[in-house]
Amino acid sequence: MDQPNLNTQPNRQMSDREHITPNQDRSGIRFPSRHLRNFNPRQALALRSERAVGAKPAYLLPALLAIVTGVVLGVLLLVLFKDQSTEPTITTIPATPGQARSGPEVKGAAELAGQSMIVWQLGSFPDAAKAAQAQKDFTNKGIASVIRGTGPFQLYAAVASDKKTGAVFEAELNQRKVTFYAKEFKIPARQGYIANLKDAEAHAVVQGLQAEAKLGLDAMALLTSAKPDADKLSALKTALTQQSADQKSWHALLLKAGLQEEAAQCDTLHKQLEAAVGALSGTPNLLDGQAKLTAFFVAYETFTEQLISVQ
């Protein structure tokens, strides 16, 4: 009769193994089959790693879709913009008239000769209001005049190269019983620079001013007589027409340099010269013509002082 198995130490070990969960060894690792109870744990880990490598990640499909979408969009953009230039578009904004030049400061050298003449003054006043009232009173008497200065304010009525050549004008004032006195009117020479102009440009402007002054002096010589010389008057008008064309060029230079106020004064100055020469046509009005010529030289003095900065 067979003897029963005793619960010896080896049998207890077998019993412990029988209590291990199927597909699991003592390390807690599950195996593919419950028949592999004695499978080595290291072999089990290697087997699991191999399965992980062979498995397809969950993000693989979205990644492929993203790549395909990017390629398709790139091709579409190339088709849409194949005719577009790769160069950037540059918009050029034209400079507005009167815009000053940018960059380093420019100063054109300028030298202008002075002028000396005799002026007939009707009065001097401490403030502009009194000067304006006196001017109005003289206008009512048929005598035109010009206000000069910024305090005191002088009232000028006529100019001439010297006192002798102004004798005809003095006779007119005496006949109207107007108090006056003759004195020297000196426009000083100026040497300095014109801002924002190059030397050649400043020289062109100065030449234009000197030509204006010369025409003013020529008109002064004709305004000393009630009947100007016809040939001299014709030559003066021809020269003035040429000067009008030249004046536009240096007027443009002032605008280009950003000197809008000076450019406006340039226009006013030339119009006053034209008015003085125009007063010589037909039967000249000596008093009216002299006042217009005086206004020209007073404006010339103010303009040159503002335009040319002394170094």
Rank of each mutant, 00 (worst) to 15 (best):
M1Y: 00
M1I: 02
M1K: 05
N5S: 10
N7C: 09
N11C: 02
M14L: 15
E18K: 11
H19P: 04
P22C: 04
N23A: 13
D25W: 01
S33E: 11
S33I: 03
F39W: 15
R42S: 13
Q43E: 12
A44Q: 13
S49F: 13
Y59T: 10
L61Y: 05
P62T: 00
A63F: 05
L65G: 08
A66K: 11
I67P: 00
I67L: 12
V68I: 12
T69A: 15
V71K: 10
V75C: 11
L76I: 13
D83L: 05
Q84P: 00
S85Y: 00
T89F: 11
T92W: 12
P94K: 07
P94Y: 02
R101M: 11
G108Y: 04
A110R: 07
G114K: 03
I118Q: 14
W120G: 14
L122R: 09
L122W: 08
L122Y: 04
G123F: 04
S124P: 07
F125E: 12
A129N: 12
K130D: 15
Q133P: 09
K141C: 01
G142A: 06
G142N: 10
G142F: 04
I143R: 01
I147P: 08
L155P: 12
Y156L: 15
A157S: 15
A158Y: 12
A158W: 06
S161H: 09
T165I: 04
V168A: 15
E170K: 13
R176S: 08
V178H: 02
T179M: 08
F180S: 11
Y181D: 12
A189T: 07
I194C: 10
K198S: 13
D199W: 01
A202H: 06
H203M: 09
A204Q: 14
A204N: 09
A204Y: 02
V205R: 10
V205K: 06
E212Y: 00
G216T: 01
G216P: 07
D218H: 05
L223F: 03
L223K: 08
T224F: 06
A226C: 05
D229E: 14
S234T: 09
Q243D: 08
Q243F: 01
K248F: 03
W250V: 03
H251P: 07
H251E: 15
L254Y: 02
A257S: 07
G258R: 12
G258K: 11
A264T: 06
A264C: 03
A264P: 04
Q265T: 05
Q265P: 03
T268Y: 07
T268N: 15
L269G: 01
H270I: 02
A275Y: 01
A275S: 11
G282W: 03
L286E: 08
L293V: 03
T294V: 00
F297P: 08
V298L: 06
Q306S: 15
Q306K: 14
I308H: 05
